[in-house]
Every structure is written in structure tokens, then in C-alpha cells.
Write a protein that binds this DNA or RNA. Sequence first.
DNA 1: ATGATACGATACGGTATCGTATCGTTTAAC
DNA 2: GTTAAACGATACGATACCGTATCGTATCAT
Lengths: 198, 198
Amino acid sequence: MVTTSNKSERVPSDKVNSRVERSRHTVLTTAFELLSEGGVTSFTVDEVARRSGVAKTTIYRHWPTREALVIDACSQMIAEQETPDTGSLEGDVTAILMEIAHLLPTANWSFVLPSIVDTAERNPEFAEIHSRIQRGHAAPLREVLQRAVGRGELSAHADVSTIVAALLGPLFYRRWFSREPIDDQFVKAIIKRVLTSL
Amino acid sequence: MVTTSNKSERVPSDKVNSRVERSRHTVLTTAFELLSEGGVTSFTVDEVARRSGVAKTTIYRHWPTREALVIDACSQMIAEQETPDTGSLEGDVTAILMEIAHLLPTANWSFVLPSIVDTAERNPEFAEIHSRIQRGHAAPLREVLQRAVGRGELSAHADVSTIVAALLGPLFYRRWFSREPIDDQFVKAIIKRVLTSL
DNA sequence: ATGATACGATACGGTATCGTATCGTTTAAC
DNA sequence: GTTAAACGATACGATACCGTATCGTATCAT
């Protein structure tokens, strides 16, 4: 099947940047944009077609159903963040939480996430996606906490999951539940509260 | 308009327990039940009619539109909790958080809330309702914290909003984001972490 | 008893959306 | 240049839901 050739890579992956791949990319971009605006509920294949300029027929040639497209679009949010390495636990945690605090009111995914959480409440496929997104958010924190354990800066018996909840919980709470602003002072207060109790 | 009479209260409020009020109550109950199952999105007037036995015509005689009914049903969630008074801040906070931890995985409203949060992200009317629900959740905590200030158990400069976020945030985080179980040990760890840092 | 009010059953128009069918046109491989 | 694959435009059937209209029936106050 995979034939070699003098030309540069004539395997199936040569279709990258082909017409097929361009359509696919255009649709996915528009889909995510639409998701950010209206959430999963008001997401419509017709609207994606209208806005992207790609014919609805073509969209259904790539995705068998509306839900498949939504899921693919949501998967774009599964992007693991950079893990800082400042040398100290407090420095690392501060870097991570400041980054998240900065993203929470602005990033597109912060507008889509409630929709995914809601859908995940009753749809296993979305529950799986949400789980992956969630792990992506928590991963850097878990890593710097593990490193702190390695350095002896943190007890090996420390409950990492609880600490993550104590750090991320208040930020998320402010963004989606109390809807209060998340300023540096708040973030620092949370970090101090958690770290001094270790 | 309001005519007095010898009989017991012949003002408009005499219609309580009348046919009108019975229909209204039946519909609202069914509506909330439906909300708990499918969230705001899949909520349908036709389904409320089917399930409740009340004719769709009658429903529209009471509520001008679907959204009005949804909002009325959501408003049932605005129920302020009891505020305990154990004498100590730790006792009060523990009582409140244990109650919430117990309700989070079971209570109907915990299944509807993500839907409301999502809708509130783009709909001011739902934002208002969510705000009221949220205040209802935080009110007991705020009160016991204020009492603690009055007793001198807590500094008058303590930032109550931050403390509330530090207490409720981790619980909500576990329920809707990390989806980990919320056991007594976790709740106590959070409380200890927050209170010892005051 | 009687009249007003509310209810039930049913049907309906209007709209939105999903997913498919058809067919002519463009792109790209060879 | 020829050919196959992918695309665009359009129309369509099917379904679900909203909100209204109609009309006969049940309830309730007086």
C-alpha cells in the first residue's frame, strides 16, 4: 500500500494541505468559533455551513453526524499547558494559577466549558472529552507538586488531588458560580492559604 | 376591585387550592422534574404536557412562553438553607459544608445547575436567577463568618468573599469538574486548610 | 340552577434543524 | 488532456417544537 517514491512523501499523509484537508480545517475552525459563541446547544450544521462557506454536503462527507462534529470541535480544547520550572513550589504554582486566572475571563474555552460540563452530565462521550480537558488543566499543577515532593519540599504523603482542588476550585468558583473578578490579590491569597497549610 | 366579605378572605388569593392553582402546581412540579433529567436544553412544553396530564393549551394560559415556564421552574431552586449555630466558627462551617457535600451528588438541583450556568453565560434573565441561587448557597457561610467576626473569632479585616470561594470552590470543583467523590475526609481537609490560615 | 371561567383534546401553521439526494463544477493526480 | 475524487448549490423528506385556534366539557362561585 505505502509505495515509496523519489518525490517527497507520497504516502497518504501527502493529502495534508490538499483540498480535503483545507475543507476540514476551515469547518473545524468555524465550528469552534460557533461553539464559543453559543455553546453546544445552539450549535448548528447549517450555521457552520453558512459561516464557513463550506457546503453542508461537504461537511457531512467528513463527519457522519452533527454530534461527531461538535465532539471534534470540542477536542480542540484539549491542549495541555506549559509546565513552568521556577525552582520553588510557590513559584511554579503562582505561574500556573496566574496564567489560568488570566485566561479564565478571556479564553474561548472558558465560554464553552459550562456547556460541555452540562452535556457531560448526561452524555458519556462528552464526559470523556471533559475528563481529558480537565486532566489537561490539572496536569501542570500535579507535575510541579510531584517535583516538590521529589525535592523534599512537600511531604510524600500529601494528597495531591485535594491540593489541586483547593487551588483550582476557588478560581473556577469565581469564574462560573459567584462571577466575581479574579484579580492577582485573590490568586495570591488562595496560594498563600494553601501552601502555608502544608 | 378587592371586595370585602363575611366569608373567609374573598380576595383574589382565595384561588389558592382552586383548579387554577392545582394546574399551576402540577405543571411546575413536572417542569422541575423534567429539568432535573435533561437540563434547560431538552426541556419541552409538549413533554411537560404529556407527562403532567395538563393540556398544552392550559400551560400556555398560565405562562406566555416556554422560557417563562423554565424560569419559573428554575426559581424553585432558590431555597435558602438553614444557618446552623454551634457556637464556634469551625462547627458552623463544618455543618454547612457537610450538608452541601451530602447534597451535591444527590439533590436534583445539582443536575440542573450546570445547565443554568451555561445558559446564564449568554442570557441575562438566567444570569439573574443563577445569581439568586448562588447567593442562597453562600448566604449561610457568609452569616457564620460574620458572626465569628462579631465574637472576635475572626479578624474584622478578613475577606469574606475569598474565604467563601476557598471553602465552596473545592467542593464544586469536585462535583462538576474533576468529578471525584466528595467524602468527609476531603471536606474536613478543606475546612482545616482554610481555618488554620486565618 | 346558571353563567362565567378554566380545562382537555385536537388540529394546525410556522419554523428550525437534521441528514440525504441530485447534479453540475472544480480540483488534482497521472 | 483525461479521469476520478471532492466540492458547491439546491432541493427535499422527516421530525420536533413553538405557540395559536377551535370547540366541547368540567368546575366553581353565587
